[in-house]
Computed example of a mutant assay.
Amino acid sequence: MASLSDFSASSLEGEQVQLCQYAGNVVLIVNTASKCGFTPQYKGLQELYRDYSGKGFTVLGFPCNQFLAQEPADEAEISRFCASTYKVTFPMFAKIEVNGPHAHPLYNWLKTAAPGIAGTTAVKWNFTKFLIDRQGKPVVRYAPTMAPSNIAPTIERLLR
Protein backbone atom coordinates (compact mmCIF):
# COMPACT_ATOMS: atom_id res chain seq x y z
CA MET A 1 0.00 0.00 0.00
CA ALA A 2 1.22 3.50 -0.82
CA SER A 3 2.17 6.09 1.75
CA LEU A 4 2.58 9.87 1.74
CA SER A 5 6.28 9.36 1.02
CA ASP A 6 5.46 7.99 -2.43
CA PHE A 7 4.26 11.35 -3.74
CA SER A 8 5.66 14.72 -4.77
CA ALA A 9 4.09 18.07 -5.60
CA SER A 10 5.13 21.51 -6.80
CA SER A 11 5.44 24.26 -4.20
CA LEU A 12 3.89 27.69 -4.74
CA GLU A 13 7.38 28.75 -5.83
CA GLY A 14 7.48 26.01 -8.50
CA GLU A 15 9.96 23.72 -6.78
CA GLN A 16 9.32 19.98 -6.82
CA VAL A 17 8.83 18.77 -3.22
CA GLN A 18 9.24 15.11 -2.32
CA LEU A 19 6.62 14.45 0.34
CA CYS A 20 8.93 11.85 1.92
CA GLN A 21 10.42 14.85 3.74
CA TYR A 22 7.34 14.65 5.99
CA ALA A 23 7.90 10.97 6.83
CA GLY A 24 7.45 10.35 10.54
CA ASN A 25 5.19 13.39 10.96
CA VAL A 26 1.47 13.68 11.46
CA VAL A 27 0.23 15.63 8.43
CA LEU A 28 -3.02 17.44 7.70
CA ILE A 29 -3.61 17.85 3.94
CA VAL A 30 -6.18 20.46 2.91
CA ASN A 31 -7.48 21.67 -0.46
CA THR A 32 -7.78 25.42 -0.09
CA ALA A 33 -9.32 28.41 -1.85
CA SER A 34 -9.07 32.14 -1.19
CA LYS A 35 -12.65 33.11 -2.11
CA CYS A 36 -14.61 30.46 -0.25
CA GLY A 37 -16.89 30.73 2.77
CA PHE A 38 -14.43 28.40 4.54
CA THR A 39 -11.37 30.53 3.71
CA PRO A 40 -11.19 31.85 7.31
CA GLN A 41 -10.17 28.30 8.27
CA TYR A 42 -6.67 29.34 7.20
CA LYS A 43 -6.47 30.99 10.64
CA GLY A 44 -7.29 27.75 12.45
CA LEU A 45 -4.96 25.74 10.24
CA GLN A 46 -2.14 28.17 11.02
CA GLU A 47 -2.92 27.86 14.74
CA LEU A 48 -2.68 24.05 14.53
CA TYR A 49 0.61 24.41 12.69
CA ARG A 50 1.93 26.89 15.25
CA ASP A 51 0.86 24.74 18.21
CA TYR A 52 2.06 21.35 16.97
CA SER A 53 4.76 21.83 14.33
CA GLY A 54 7.51 21.51 16.95
CA LYS A 55 6.08 18.13 17.96
CA GLY A 56 6.15 16.46 14.54
CA PHE A 57 3.07 17.87 12.84
CA THR A 58 2.55 19.87 9.68
CA VAL A 59 -0.23 21.21 7.49
CA LEU A 60 0.08 21.00 3.70
CA GLY A 61 -2.17 23.34 1.72
CA PHE A 62 -3.18 22.57 -1.87
CA PRO A 63 -5.06 25.39 -3.61
CA CYS A 64 -7.79 24.17 -5.95
CA ASN A 65 -10.05 26.07 -8.34
CA GLN A 66 -12.52 23.24 -9.05
CA PHE A 67 -15.32 24.43 -6.77
CA LEU A 68 -17.13 27.45 -8.24
CA ALA A 69 -13.76 28.90 -9.34
CA GLN A 70 -13.05 30.03 -5.76
CA GLU A 71 -9.26 30.00 -6.28
CA PRO A 72 -8.77 32.07 -9.44
CA ALA A 73 -5.39 33.51 -8.40
CA ASP A 74 -1.99 32.43 -9.65
CA GLU A 75 0.61 30.98 -7.30
CA ALA A 76 2.29 34.33 -6.54
CA GLU A 77 -1.03 35.92 -5.62
CA ILE A 78 -2.04 32.91 -3.50
CA SER A 79 1.26 33.19 -1.64
CA ARG A 80 0.76 36.93 -0.98
CA PHE A 81 -2.85 36.42 0.11
CA CYS A 82 -2.02 33.61 2.54
CA ALA A 83 0.92 35.48 4.05
CA SER A 84 -0.71 38.90 4.35
CA THR A 85 -4.26 37.93 5.29
CA TYR A 86 -3.72 34.84 7.47
CA LYS A 87 0.03 34.90 8.22
CA VAL A 88 0.31 31.35 6.83
CA THR A 89 3.71 29.77 7.40
CA PHE A 90 2.84 26.13 6.72
CA PRO A 91 3.83 24.67 3.33
CA MET A 92 1.58 25.66 0.44
CA PHE A 93 1.67 24.03 -2.95
CA ALA A 94 0.83 24.96 -6.53
CA LYS A 95 -2.80 24.77 -7.62
CA ILE A 96 -4.01 21.27 -8.37
CA GLU A 97 -7.15 19.44 -9.30
CA VAL A 98 -8.55 17.08 -6.67
CA ASN A 99 -11.27 15.40 -8.77
CA GLY A 100 -11.64 14.24 -12.35
CA PRO A 101 -9.24 12.94 -14.97
CA HIS A 102 -6.54 15.50 -14.10
CA ALA A 103 -6.68 15.00 -10.33
CA HIS A 104 -3.27 15.03 -8.68
CA PRO A 105 -2.06 11.48 -7.89
CA LEU A 106 -1.81 12.41 -4.20
CA TYR A 107 -5.51 13.18 -4.13
CA ASN A 108 -6.44 10.05 -6.07
CA TRP A 109 -4.67 8.08 -3.34
CA LEU A 110 -6.18 10.09 -0.47
CA LYS A 111 -9.73 9.78 -1.79
CA THR A 112 -9.44 6.01 -2.09
CA ALA A 113 -7.58 5.47 1.20
CA ALA A 114 -9.95 7.69 3.23
CA PRO A 115 -13.37 7.67 1.55
CA GLY A 116 -16.10 10.05 2.57
CA ILE A 117 -19.59 9.39 3.86
CA ALA A 118 -21.14 6.20 2.47
CA GLY A 119 -17.86 5.36 0.75
CA THR A 120 -17.89 8.27 -1.67
CA THR A 121 -14.49 9.16 -3.02
CA ALA A 122 -14.90 12.58 -4.65
CA VAL A 123 -13.81 15.63 -2.70
CA LYS A 124 -17.03 17.58 -2.19
CA TRP A 125 -15.69 21.10 -1.55
CA ASN A 126 -12.82 23.35 -0.57
CA PHE A 127 -11.21 22.74 2.82
CA THR A 128 -11.76 18.99 2.87
CA LYS A 129 -9.09 17.70 5.23
CA PHE A 130 -7.15 14.42 5.32
CA LEU A 131 -5.21 13.50 8.46
CA ILE A 132 -2.14 11.30 7.90
CA ASP A 133 -0.43 9.33 10.70
CA ARG A 134 3.31 9.05 11.36
CA GLN A 135 3.47 5.98 9.12
CA GLY A 136 2.23 8.05 6.18
CA LYS A 137 -1.23 6.46 6.10
CA PRO A 138 -4.53 8.38 5.95
CA VAL A 139 -6.45 8.06 9.21
CA VAL A 140 -9.56 10.12 8.58
CA ARG A 141 -11.18 12.51 6.12
CA TYR A 142 -12.87 15.60 7.56
CA ALA A 143 -15.64 17.53 5.86
CA PRO A 144 -15.06 21.19 4.95
CA THR A 145 -17.33 22.19 7.84
CA MET A 146 -14.95 20.64 10.40
CA ALA A 147 -13.20 23.49 12.20
CA PRO A 148 -9.44 22.93 12.44
CA SER A 149 -9.56 23.37 16.24
CA ASN A 150 -11.85 20.33 16.48
CA ILE A 151 -9.14 18.18 14.91
CA ALA A 152 -6.61 19.01 17.66
CA PRO A 153 -7.53 16.08 19.96
CA THR A 154 -6.93 13.55 17.17
CA ILE A 155 -3.65 15.27 16.24
CA GLU A 156 -2.55 15.06 19.88
CA ARG A 157 -3.42 11.35 20.02
CA LEU A 158 -1.46 10.63 16.83
CA LEU A 159 1.54 12.61 18.09
CA ARG A 160 1.80 10.46 21.26
Rank of each mutant, 00 (worst) to 15 (best):
A122I: 11
A122E: 14
V123K: 07
K124N: 11
K124W: 06
K124R: 14
K124H: 13
K124V: 12
W125N: 03
N126R: 09
N126H: 12
N126L: 10
N126P: 09
F127Q: 00
F127A: 09
F127Y: 09
T128M: 10
T128Q: 05
T128F: 09
T128A: 11
T128G: 08
T128K: 04
K129I: 03
K129Y: 05
K129C: 04
K129M: 02
F130A: 06
F130S: 00
L131T: 03
L131C: 05
L131Y: 06
L131S: 03
I132K: 02
I132L: 07
I132S: 05
D133Q: 07
R134Y: 05
R134D: 06
R134T: 08
Q135N: 15
Q135G: 14
Q135Y: 10
Q135S: 15
G136H: 05
K137L: 15
K137R: 15
K137W: 13
K137P: 02
K137C: 15
K137T: 14
P138K: 06
P138W: 09
P138D: 06
P138S: 12
P138L: 10
P138T: 03
P138E: 07
V139S: 07
V139T: 08
V139C: 07
V140M: 10
V140L: 14
V140S: 10
V140A: 15
V140T: 12
R141D: 02
R141W: 06
R141A: 09
Y142C: 05
Y142A: 08
Y142Q: 00
A143M: 14
A143L: 14
A143F: 14
A143T: 13
P144C: 12
P144W: 08
T145F: 09
T145L: 13
T145M: 12
M146L: 14
M146A: 14
M146C: 15
M146S: 13
M146F: 08
M146I: 13
M146V: 14
A147R: 04
A147F: 02
A147N: 02
A147V: 07
A147E: 10
A147P: 00
P148M: 04
P148S: 11
P148Q: 03
S149K: 08
S149Q: 11
S149N: 13
S149Y: 04
S149V: 12
N150A: 13
N150M: 13
I151L: 01
I151Q: 01
I151W: 00
A152G: 12
A152I: 01
A152T: 01
A152K: 06
P153H: 07
P153G: 09
T154Y: 01
T154P: 00
